[in-house]
Design a protein around this nucleic acid. Structure first.
Lengths: 177, 177
DNA sequence: GTCTATAATTTGATAGAC
DNA sequence: GTCTATCAAATTATAGAC
């Protein structure tokens, strides 16, 4: 099982550097110190290799977040969503660095992210309704745009913990949390 | 000059669909109804073709923004920066759709954008200092993260004018503008 | 599970004519 | 300025042996 994992790790590193399309399977094989053929034996195609990376990562993400976001009040849910980028990028920085680089152009990557995010928009709308915001749907959409922006910033720039915390507190402040 | 422009237009369309790397020069030639050789005669390489697209677009952007952002008070400057995504994506929606898709992975694309954005961070910091915010540098950074997020949202989703306006007003409201 | 060798395409780029 | 023809390299994927 070691070689299979080596390939997954190497692919993550190289996809992050150059994107999926610009990473030859030959490079992945060299980086993983294995043969190119083994990649295809294990995963079928390069896209299925990416699919495998996504599946494993989002399984872990769902595992982490369902506990964290369950049974919260409206204010607590909003606060937890604002904290999400910090929680998830710390838990798997390498994956998120790749994810935010390839998402805009890669349908597999963006599909996984949208499936994860969809329920959050609905729940956030309810929260803002509950708190009597005048345009709850728009507020929910805007907050998700913000969260996405911060997420991308954390993933790309990997600021130190103090700065991450300071930014997140500043956002919460704007929502009086 | 018509064929040269046809190539630039075709490249913009195809780079937006699939990214630069995944767009063969052959496809650009077909889409532009010309020969592949002409692309190389006019632009040298595929990257230089992209460089030309960027140069022209950012020249127009600088032309538009220098007038709009000159001689403003701190409050006015912040408000104008918040309006920037709406102004620029409306003025050239196709370019921005491409730009926000390819930026994370394309060094040419991201270089042009960073060069344009760098001065804004400095100026925004001064504005927040002037308005006695307690963490002006962090506020400036956060606002730019927000602006980038909204910009990307407008570029990718192209919402109608009413929704764009409503979102921008909501942001201004959070900065009491 | 893993490798070597190789097939089959695709792709960026050039030569040379008009 | 523009085209046809073409090359050399890169790239995905497979066959077959150990």
């Amino acid at each position: 099982m070691s070689k299979k994992q080596d390939i997954l790790d190497a692919a993550l590193r190289l996809f992050t550097e150059n994107g999926v399309r610009a990473t030859p399977t030959k490079s992945i094989a060299t980086e993983a110190e294995t043969s190119e053929a083994l990649i295809f034996k294990h995963f079928g195609t390069k896209d299925q290799l990416l699919e495998e990376i996504m599946k494993k990562a989002y399984q872990a993400i769902v595992r982490e977040t369902t506990v964290r976001l369950a049974g919260l009040s409206s204010k607590e849910y909003i606060a937890s969503m604002i904290e999400l980028p910090i929680i998830l990028t710390r838990s798997n920085p390498d994956f998120w660095r790749m994810q935010y680089k390839i998402m805009p152009l890669n349908p597999i990557s963006s599909r996984y992210h949208e499936n994860f995010m969809r329920p959050c928009l609905l729940r956030l709308t309810e929260c803002f309704e509950d708190l009597n915001y005048s345009q709850p749907e728009l507020e929910a959409e805007l907050l998700l745009i913000y969260i996405d922006g911060v997420w991308k910033y954390f993933a790309a720039n990997q600021p130190d913990a103090a700065k991450e915390k300071a930014l997140v507190e500043l956002i919460k402040q704007k929502y009086k949390l």
